[in-house]
Design a protein around this nucleic acid. Structure first.
Lengths: 334, 334
DNA sequence: GTCTTTTCTGGTAACGTTAACAGATGCTTA
DNA sequence: TAAGCATCTGTTAACGTTACCAGAAAAGAC
């Protein structure tokens, strides 16, 4: 008991006793057992973050944001990576719940069975915050960027440059943000009285229950080639994310075409790489770091509230970053 | 007790009883308490991975490799990110040790106080594997790539192309792999009877006890500019990593110089980005995914051994990837 | 029918911590 | 001197699980 008081710096302990305890603890390499503590205290001061793909720069920024807030408040962050596999995602939920983290921030892609498991978790009392993924639940907070508006702005930008024949490349998963970006594309076209054309939309749909929608450089490359093979290829491309855009750029260059003169390209996410491509990529910036911070704040608020909290939502604006893949000229054109 | 038997599928339980337990468990959303289990069992089937910087593609690959092996064996991986801060690194060690993970894989940069804490941890009985960082301890396994040879090969490649005036850009931390790469550079020069020149080596040294050596694009950019301001600038550059190389490339291009005709550039790591720069970057590939897998295997072997294991070491070969930043021509030259 | 074995279920104690309480000591105040 | 208070330390019980043991019930052997 006295040891406990020394370790937690609570209650009265005689300075001499404190010294002695610390000395002996040091001598025997004593560490307080967090399992026993968590068991007794019913809290571990630990938050789990489930993320699909760490290779994605999005992940790094989210982690940074979440961590920033959590460490400042004395919480530890454990990150679980599930490599875009729903089976692994569910396993991560179970693991985190088993180890009694105080809350789980979920930043994976939405999926049917993932959502079902999540719902069970929430009903068993684990606080959950959804980040950048659709998830509706009475007791779950939600943070995201405005992908719909982002997609709209990207497409409107191309339209304002005079493009009328605008392609979309990327997997259009049935769940989640990817769909929103695509809807933004459609809405922008319609708002400017351009009829969306089926053959200009490539990348396919995913079976949302097997692999969550994820769009890669390969998809961008293959998709762009399909578009360039059309009798009347598009003069501009809105890619679902920067990696897809990058693949598209490779395909365009390989045919000896010029960007943006022959084909203009807009991506999404503004990954660090985007400003280093040639030409530098016009893209939509989403405040990822900010999303992480807000998710963490929502989580702490929820944990520290004594009674069940109502759902909090926050949708952050995106910002179009215009570079030379849509507007010619500038120093970096190389 | 019977519930425990049902949950763990051990011992004798009457089928009817099992059904009943499962039904009630489901009804009340019962989850076995991993804390209590860990407390009793003295193991949590959980491994901690401490990593400095998730934004680095190196991290993603390491995580993937480690995870692959661990999940196959029923272990859960918790990743702790410490943003290149030694204070945070130590906090991560404490957290993981507190929560009684079964072992810790350390993939941060080495540092004096980090190493000291690590040593204490090991002495208190936590199995530790060091990945890609120098750490000598009788009971700690070690996995790394052969940075020395990698640095040697990169430099030798430039020498074979006829370069005699070869610069080095990058922080040369007193601890760890960065130093090895630099030593490889020096050894290659000496082996070809070229005297290393102080003024061709830029990027500075870090105070290994404050921030672990980490070399960025900014350092590459600034360093390259310093080199280009010399009366006799180098005709080739070996950069400590690809990001640094990228910064150097920006600086070279900005002065209107050509790569590789005016200045050849070699990086290190072969990040995905390296093949997309213009020109594509010659660099040294290190088998990161493999390192992760081996680290995890070492860890499991150590955990499952009943008695203390002697140190295991494994140094994997790197491979020079020649692209157009050293050898002109090719399709992708743009 | 009796004995042995297998199958099944529950009691007890322990893992290491902390909240709550109880008791001891010394110091201050009336 | 006695009461009141602050300071300090130890005891007990509980968190939820599992190893170990005990015993009951069922099944099989003779």
């Amino acid at each position: 008991m006295t040891v406990s008081r020394v370790m937690n710096q609570t209650g009265y302990v005689h300075p001499a006793t404190r010294e002695k305890v610390l000395r002996v603890a040091n001598e025997f390499n004593y560490r307080r057992n967090g399992l026993a503590r968590g068991l007794k205290m019913q809290c571990t001061e630990t938050i789990g973050l489930v993320i699909g793909d760490v290779a994605n720069p999005f992940a790094a920024e989210v982690i940074r944001g979440v961590r920033e807030v959590l460490t400042a408040r004395g919480y530890t962050l454990f990150v679980c990576v599930c490599e875009q596999s729903i089976k692994e995602e569910v396993a991560a939920f179970e693991s985190l719940a088993d180890h009694r983290v105080d809350g789980i921030i979920v930043a994976t892609r939405a999926s049917q069975s993932g959502n079902a498991h999540l719902k069970k978790l929430i009903e068993s009392g684990v606080p959950v915050v959804a980040l950048g993924r659709d998830f509706a639940h009475r007791h779950t907070d939600f943070v995201s960027a405005d992908h719909l508006k982002g997609g709209y702005d990207a497409t409107a930008h191309l339209i304002q440059l005079g493009h009328k024949h605008i392609g979309f490349i990327g997997t259009k998963q049935t769940y989640g943000a990817g769909l929103k970006r695509f809807q933004g594309y459609l809405e922008a076209l319609r708002a400017h009285r351009i009829t969306p054309q089926e053959q200009l939309i490539v990348g396919g749909q995913n079976d949302a229950d097997q692999t969550p929608g994820y769009s890669t450089e390969e998809i961008g490359y293959a998709g762009m080639n399909r578009l360039l093979d059309l009798r009347k290829p598009p003069t501009a491309i809105f890619a679902r994310n920067d990696f897809t855009a990058l693949g598209a750029i490779s395909a365009i260059k390989q045919r000896g075409l010029c960007i943006p003169q022959d084909v203009a390209v807009v991506g999404f996410d503004d990954v660090p790489l985007a400003s280093h491509t040639s030409p530098p990529l016009t893209t939509v910036f989403q405040p990822t770091h900010e999303q992480g911070k807000i998710a963490a704040e929502f989580m702490l608020r929820r944990i520290e509230a004594l009674e069940p909290m109502p759902r909090a939502e926050r949708v952050l604006p995106c910002r179009l970053v215009i570079r030379e893949s849509t507007v010619a000229g500038g120093i970096g054109a190389n």
